[in-house]
């Protein structure tokens, strides 16, 4: 399927796919960057956001309410998780944090299965955004087009929060040098809680925004989690711009490779990650020395 039209189509599709990956990965990366905790429950949170939105949609029939509900619910989940569990792990080895979030991920997935069964759930896009748009070179689902815009706005909002507010300055300073922030007398725990909440919120938001694209099952987060790892490693762990760049690169690799040989789309993705590790181990936009 190597034609000019298809190439342009795939480039565009890669952008759409990448935008979503960028959004999910950005939550993972800022949590890691600030708290030093790699949240292995991030995929489960993505899934949870979708289900929370689904419940809200079933109750109200409004997609906007669903998005808000999915996002807020994950904010609550994130804050609660940080306060009740993660907080007690800051003083413990990284591995313990990985283990506990890994376990929490399993618990979330199986809880959802218990309540919603394994039958997939669908959240339809809002009326306004349903249907297909002709873009000249290809027909593209209107909602997916809109999702690119929605994700772009969300990423911009995160950018503003991280780069244009006091909170953001503290967070970024914390990513650079946690000891310094601590010594400034800033209540790091509160910052951590907020950051974890924001990261969880980003996952939840991505989950519900993705729900009209891909129907929900309890296992929807697992495949995403591994991809976000790749995105974060390519972009640079802890780097917000890195997550965005990594997401876009990953989206393009999957899409463009599928044009030549669809069976190898994911192998190419992992291949790209290996290449980055060989040539620039800290990731494309990562800073050296952060582990």
């Amino acid at each position: 399927m190597i034609t000019w039209t298809n190439f342009v189509s795939q480039l565009f599709n890669g952008l759409a796919l990448g935008a979503l990956l960028a959004l999910i990965s950005s939550g993972l990366t800022i949590i890691y960057g600030t708290l030093g905790v790699l949240n292995l429950a991030h995929g489960a949170m993505f899934m949870l956001g979708g289900y929370a939105g689904y419940v809200a949609y079933e109750a109200t029939g409004s997609f906007v309410v669903a998005v808000i509900a999915g996002t807020l619910f994950l904010l609550v989940v994130g804050v609660a998780m940080e306060r009740l569990i993660i907080r007690h792990f800051y003083g413990r080895p990284h591995e313990d944090q990985l283990l506990v979030t890994f376990g929490l991920g399993i618990v979330m997935v199986e809880l959802v299965r218990l309540f919603f069964s394994s039958l997939s759930k669908t959240v339809p896009p809002p009326q306004l955004l349903s249907g297909i748009t002709s873009m000249g070179f290809l027909f593209y689902p209107t909602y997916r087009l809109a999702a690119v815009g929605i994700v772009a706005v969300a990423l911009l909002a995160m950018y503003i929060v991280l780069y244009r507010t006091r909170l953001g300055m503290i967070v970024r300073a914390g990513i650079e040098d946690p000891v310094m922030v601590d010594s400034l007398g800033i209540n790091v725990y509160r910052i951590f809680m907020i950051v974890f909440g924001i990261g969880a919120m980003a996952a939840g938001f991505a989950g519900i925004v993705n729900a009209p694209v891909a129907s929900l099952t309890p296992d929807v987060g697992e495949a995403i989690l591994v991809q976000t790892f790749v995105v974060v490693v390519i972009g640079g762990v802890g780097s917000f711009p890195g997550a965005v760049l990594g997401g876009l690169i990953a989206g393009e690799i999957i899409s463009v490779t599928s044009m030549f040989n669809p069976g190898y789309a994911y192998v190419m993705l992992f291949g790209a990650m290996t290449l980055v590790l060989m040539l620039r181990p800290q990731g494309l936009l990562g800073t050296k020395g952060r582990e």
Partner: peptide, 23 residues
């Protein structure tokens, strides 16, 4: 005209479907 091979549990089929749409 095309055979779109995808891995088990793929989270998204858009790139495969784009190829099919153009096939």
């Amino acid at each position: 005209v095309t055979n779109q091979v995808s891995p088990l549990g793929a989270p998204d089929f858009s790139s495969y479907l784009t190829n099919i749409a153009n096939s």
